[in-house]
Each structure stands twice: as C-alpha cells, then as structure tokens.
C-alpha cells in the first residue's frame, strides 16, 4: 500500500452497497483512490467493476431501480447528497466508453460540444479549447487540417482519442475509462495506453479493464473485484507480484476469469 498511501486521496468510497432492483451488485465496497494517478479495476465479467465506475459520475442514476447505500466522497463532498448537481459533477468527472461514441457532427463540433453546453460562446476561446484538447489527446497532428470533417471519417482508435479529447474539453479533474480500449486494435490500444501515462500528470484516472496486462502496464493502483466485492486493493506492482489473497492469485495467473 506504499504508493497508495503516499499520494493524496481524491475519492473516498465507504461501505458502498448498490442494488439493481433486488440484485445486489456491489457489496460493502470501501477504497480510496489517489489523486493524479491511474487506478485500474480488474475482475471477471459481472463482478461490479463497471458498476462502481459509473457510480463515480452517477451514470447509474439513469438505470431505473438503482439503489445506493453508503458514501462516495470526491474531494470531501458526498456526491450522492442533495446539494450536489449531477450535471456539474459529470463536468468534473469525465467518462470515456467502451465503444467510441463520437456525435454525428464534425471533429470540431464534437470537442466544442461540452464547452458550448457549459456556456463558452466565443469563437477564439472555442478554437483554443479544441486545439488544446486535441493536443492533449495526441490527435491534433492527425486531424488539424480536417476539423470540419465528420468524426466518423476517423478510424476506431482516432475516434476513441477524439472521445478522450471531448471529455478533456470541459476541463474535468477525473477521467473514467470504461474498458476504453477493448474495441480497438493492438496499435490503437498502445497509443491510448501511452496517452493515459501522459494524462495522469494532470488528471486522476480510473479505468476498468478486462485486460490484466493492461492494468499491469498502465496503472499505479489495482483493485480486484469478485462478485460485487473488493477482494484486494494495492499498488499494482505488489498486487501482481505478491498478491495477499488466494483468489487474486488464481485470477492473475489465469486459473479463472
């Protein structure tokens, strides 16, 4: 736990239970997620890792019958308390999805969508945001001459980096990545992984991944989930080289999952 405790905690989850109707999807989950680092959630399908990710920007709210008990604090604020405005929360906690989901608009308008939503109107300001966001997502050099083209003219990997740029354009503090590379080819995946390494200096990144090697390559902390419970949470090196729980060891050595 050395790295995890050395960094400042940004997200604090305590005794979180989540139900979809009668299905108990998360069971007494507790963990802290440090600032400006990469935290990876791993575990077999249906273990609750994506569910937990979506509680961090309250995307679960849209699923009817979702019930939550316990606390999720970001920078000291309980995000499920009444005074929290969901839209403002989501502006601060950006998200990238499994399938690239660019809007059916131009590359420029995809990036400018968020800032426009939150009130930026000036053309020069928007130009600046679009350029900065695309540069941060390492896409600028590939698209700078085609900003008016449809986002669908891009390849899958470029579309996913566009979605990352779109999320960065509203200036979030946290970036959630829900298996963001699982629909991509190995080269595009590698580019996104490199990008994540860059971005962690400015953003707190929480990623769900199916790919244990990816977690090992990219993350600083790893959380292993099983059946809605956190089995083990440690810094990545320790968790992969010297897991303290037998189930973690079985999973990372490929005995199940």
């Amino acid at each position: 736990m050395s790295t995890a405790t050395a960094l400042k905690t940004l997200i604090d989850i305590r005794d979180l239970d989540l139900y979809y109707g009668t299905y108990h999807a998360l069971k007494k989950v507790s963990m802290t997620i440090p600032e400006k680092a990469v935290t990876a959630f791993i575990g077999p399908s249906g273990c609750g890792k994506s569910t937990l990710l979506r509680t961090l920007n309250r995307m679960n709210d849209m699923i009817i019958g979702t019930r939550i008990e316990g606390k999720v604090e970001i920078a000291g604020t309980d995000i499920y308390s009444n005074e929290v405005d969901v839209e403002t929360l989501r502006k601060k906690v950006g998200m990238v999805f499994q399938q690239p989901n660019p809007f059916p608009k131009s590359i420029y308008d995809n990036i400018a969508y968020g800032p426009r939503l939150h009130g930026t109107r000036s053309k020069s300001q928007l130009d600046e945001i679009v350029e900065q966001s695309l540069k941060q997502a390492v896409l600028w050099d590939e698209v700078k001459d085609y900003l008016k083209r449809s986002a669908f003219s891009l390849s899958g990997g470029q579309q996913q980096r566009l979605c990352i740029a779109r999320a960065l354009a509203v200036n979030p503090d946290i970036l959630l990545m829900d298996e963001a590379t699982s629909a991509l080819d190995p080269i595009s995946t590698l580019k996104i992984e490199e990008l994540v390494q860059e971005l962690k200096h400015r953003y707190t990144i929480v990623m769900v991944t199916h790919n244990m090697h990816q977690a090992a390559r990219v993350s600083d902390q790893t959380v292993f989930f099983l059946n809605g419970e956190v089995v083990e949470f440690d810094n990545t090196e320790t968790l992969f080289s010297n897991p303290s729980d037998k189930r973690t060891e079985d999973y990372i050595t490929g005995r199940f999952g």
């Binding site: 989501r90 950006g94 989901n101 809007f103 969508y113 968020g114 509203v170």
Partner: peptide, 26 residues
C-alpha cells in the same frame, strides 16, 4: 443510439439538452 445520449450525459448535459442538441439533430 443510446451511446450518443450517454456521451452527452457524461459531459454534463441535462435531459433537455440531450434531447435538443443530440437526439433531435441526429
């Protein structure tokens, strides 16, 4: 597609903004 709506919600759009600026144009 739902994924477009989710993309907009994740940027902090309200229901009405999603309807008017994502769904209607699409």
């Amino acid at each position: 597609p739902r994924s477009l709506r989710h993309g907009a919600y994740a940027l902090g759009a309200t229901r009405f903004e999603v309807a008017l600026k994502i769904v209607v144009p699409a």
